[in-house]
């Protein structure tokens, strides 16, 4: 299913197949407040924010319920992402039970791979979440 639906944190959803995969675009304008301090002489998007985008899209790809990112494995940041870039994030669900899911993710800028995550492990979140009582 290709859809025009919105996924929070993304500017465009290219593809969303619930339970299987998703592709979405996140634009990186120079106006992002994070660039004021990261870094003053060389603005670059923090890699952990790319990781967060991967996790957000993974949750959208899982399609239902509330999911919490618990573990990441094999995360690689290959190139800097900065103002003006358009980041395409792709996630693929590689395993799932009722309570857990495994997702693989890749981020590209103009076909160049800028970051990869071999595995994002998400767990179904039950209310109240652990640590929030």
């Amino acid at each position: 299913m290709t859809t025009m639906m919105l996924v929070p944190g993304f500017d465009r959803v290219v593809e969303l197949v619930p339970g299987e995969r998703a592709v979405a675009i996140r634009n990186i304008p120079a106006t992002l407040p994070v660039f004021a301090t990261h870094f003053a002489r060389f603005p670059v998007l923090p890699g952990v924010l790319l990781l967060e985008s991967m996790a957000d899209l993974a949750k959208a790809a899982l399609g239902d319920g509330h999911w919490r990112l618990r573990t990441v494995r094999g995360v690689r940041f290959r190139h800097f992402v900065g103002p003006g870039d358009q980041v395409e994030i792709r996630v693929e669900v590689t395993g799932r039970t009722d309570q857990t899911a495994q997702v693989r993710a890749t981020a590209r800028v103009e076909e160049r791979v800028v970051a990869t995550a071999r595995g994002l492990a998400l767990v179904a979140a039950e209310q109240p979440w652990e640590g929030t009582q």
């Binding site: 952990v48 924010l49 990781l51 967060e52 996790a55 979140a125 209310q127 109240p128 979440w129 929030t132």
Partner: peptide, 17 residues
């Protein structure tokens, strides 16, 4: 989140980094 605000995984990792 459904149970209230939380710090993202990425920012907790960033604090360590």
């Amino acid at each position: 989140t459904p149970a209230g605000p939380v710090l993202s995984f990425g920012l907790a990792l960033e604090a360590l980094c």
